[in-house]
Design a protein around this nucleic acid. Structure first.
Length: 607
DNA sequence: ACCGGAAGTG
DNA sequence: CACTTCCGGT
């Protein structure tokens, strides 16, 4: 299944999402917005303003007009456009800056980090206020091809090769569509654009901003091509430090924005900056089970990343998903059971400039920052409620439903739809948070899945996934399931080679026992635990994650409530590693499996 | 303004 | 799917 021997790179077949992937779709709104934002010509109409990622639409109707022109929807108006924008809330691409008229804020974690992990988000500094994503690039920076689905879709996020592969693929095919769809209709935008933009028509052009010109295409492949000694640019190929490069000159010490060709796509440069670790070329994430990597490298890589997540609040999504690897979680679990971090006040980490101190080994408290997410995406058709858990309709975001559905499936899942209001402090988010960019990811909890879910070691939960087609599915629900991202490995038992060693056995389910039945109980327990955690972490922070979950699993409700009532504070979350592998059903999503495993692990493997 | 459900579209 | 259109509600 490996593949493409033909193409030269090592991505397995599954890495290439079938045509299903949004090959060349029409331009998307957020992309368009970004485009406008990028051009000074439109600064009178829309511009960055305020916090990081915040922008204000100065002339709503005009923006709408432009959008309408681009989409050939003459009837477009701000009302409609804003509706579209609102849809982004759930997708978390955007959110509204409350109180400020026509002001929205991008969630670059999703857009940039996830999609293009190699872009250093930390470089916000230096750039004025609202800091465009990769500001340093200033006007030169071209937003990467906008393929939100690539970006946002759980199925294609970093955990899966999807992102890159699709990018690569498109590059290879020269069919980059995205922003500024070639459809010539985009005159509107072009008008103001200087010649600089129209360099080439090929892929190069589209990626110009994203990748260093030299880096595109073959370089990209080389870079990410995996083993085989690729990855080193030919002499003379300077990939960083180029002003034109989208990779901003990293504000951080170390090499420029791009860590170097050897850097895996999954590595955001930030971490590299403070950690000596240099990814080995052989370390190509996303190869999943098929790719054999050097455990050591992997280990360091993971650690580095993990750390960076903690230290810099990088989106965990920026990391690839390593099915069998356990990333040591900086003690979060142990986070002083007794001392509920009194100060969970959202001390937002500095939004823009990240301080560079590297505390190598010591990480601070789990995550002090408060993060607020948009309300969980509701499936639009939740109205009929029962429709389904399994309904294929679950959108990328809704995938959690699927997962949940799985969990609940056996039991009656039908029930009146319960609309849970987010506990949230929605407000706080906006104004208070300041940093919400780094927000969600935190491992804290994720909410929807954005979080990095450390794969569980448990046994080789090896992803059945990776092997085949079900990858999509798995990935999908996988990530979304919030629930499952618990602190995984005990901090002290980081990845041991043995752990790393386990590879996914293609086609093989986890050794976990079969018997999905107990999935539910597990879940319940997990939930309880989780709730407690939540409580500790932030009393009222659960927000949508919960919300969503709740919705998705009303059946579990009671349990949650119970825990919430503060019933048994006895946190059973001992992370003892030893735990009998819990049973799980093969067909259950890997997430489920993981969760299950985790759960059992945590609650001393009962079941 | 802004929100978000619902239905429709390509 | 990512909107577009419409709309009732705040």
């Amino acid at each position: 299944m490996k593949t493409p021997g033909d193409t030269g790179f090592a991505f397995p077949d599954w890495a290439y999402k079938p045509e299903s992937s949004p090959g060349s779709r029409q331009i998307q709104l957020w992309c368009f917005i970004l485009e406008l934002l990028r051009k000074e010509e439109y600064h009178e109409v829309i511009a960055w303003q305020g916090d990081y990622g915040e922008f204000v639409i100065k002339d709503p109707e005009e923006v709408a007009r432009l959008w309408g022109a681009r989409k050939c929807k003459p009837q477009m108006n701000y009302d409609k456009l804003s509706r579209a924008l609102r849809y982004y809330y759930n997708k978390r691409i955007l959110h509204k800056t409350k109180g400020k008229r026509f002001t929205y804020k991008f969630n670059f974690n999703k857009l940039v980090l996830v999609n293009y992990p190699f872009i250093d988000m930390g470089s916000g500094r230096g750039v004025p206020q609202s800091a465009p994503p990769v500001p340093t690039g200033g006007s030169h920076f071209r937003f990467p091809p906008c393929t939100p689905s690539d970006v946002l879709s759980p199925s294609e996020d970093l955990r899966s090769p999807g992102v890159f592969s699709s990018v690569a693929r498109r590059l290879g095919r020269g069919s980059v569509s995205d922003c500024s769809d070639g459809t010539s209709t985009n005159s509107e935008l072009e008008e103001g654009v200087g010649g600089e933009e129209r360099g080439g028509a090929g892929p190069e052009r589209a990626f110009r901003g994203l990748l260093h010109p030299r880096l595109s295409h073959d370089s990209l492949f080389r870079t990410y091509g995996g083993p085989g000694g690729l990855g080193r640019p030919p002499p003379g190929h300077r990939v960083h430090g180029d002003p034109m490069s989208p990779f901003p000159v990293s504000p951080l010490p170390g090499p420029g924005g791009l860590l170097g060709p050897t850097l895996s796509p999954g590595l955001s440069m930030t971490p590299g900056s403070h950690l000596p670790y240099t990814p080995s070329p052989s370390l190509s994430p996303m190869l999943g089970s098929h790719f054999s990597f050097n455990p050591d490298d992997m280990k360091r890589y993971l650690q580095a990343h993990h750390q960076s997540v903690y230290n810099y609040h990088l989106s965990p999504r920026a990391f690839f998903h390593y099915p069998n690897i356990v990333v040591p979680q900086p003690h979060r679990p142990s986070a002083a059971p007794d001392k509920p971090m009194t100060a969970h006040h959202h001390a937002p980490p500095m939004p823009h400039s990240h301080s560079l101190h590297h505390h190598q080994g010591e990480e601070q408290h789990p995550s002090p920052f408060k993060f607020k997410l948009q309300p969980p995406p509701l499936g639009r058709k939740q109205k009929d409620g029962s429709t389904s858990s399994t309904g294929g309709s679950s959108s990328s975001l809704g995938s959690s439903y699927a997962a949940s559905g799985l969990l609940s499936n056996s039991s009656s899942s039908v029930g009146p739809k319960i609309k849970v209001e987010p506990v949230s402090d929605v407000e706080s988010d906006e104004e208070v948070e300041v940093t919400d960019i780094s927000e969600e990811d935190e491992l804290l909890d994720d909410d929807e899945g954005d979080v990095f879910t450390p794969p569980h070691p448990t046994n080789g939960t090896a992803p059945t996934a990776i092997t085949n087609g079900n990858l999509g599915a798995i990935v999908e629900d996988d990530l979304d399931e919030d629930v499952f991202k618990t602190p995984a490995a005990p901090p002290m038992a980081p990845l041991t080679p043995s752990l790393l060693g386990l590879k996914s056995e293609p086609g093989q389910g986890p050794p976990i026992s079969p018997g999905g039945t107990l999935c539910i109980p597990l879940k319940l327990r997990f939930k309880r635990r989780w709730s407690e955690d939540q409580k500790m972490e932030a009393d009222g922070e659960r927000d949508e994650a919960e919300d969503k979950k709740v919705r998705a699993e009303k059946q579990v409700e009671p349990a949650r409530r119970q825990s919430e009532n503060g019933e048994g504070p006895r946190r059973s979350l001992s992370l003892s590693l030893r735990a009998p592998p819990p049973p799980a059903q093969r067909r259950a999503s890997s997430e489920l499996q993981r969760a299950t495993a985790q759960l059992s692990l945590e609650s001393h493997g009962a079941c």
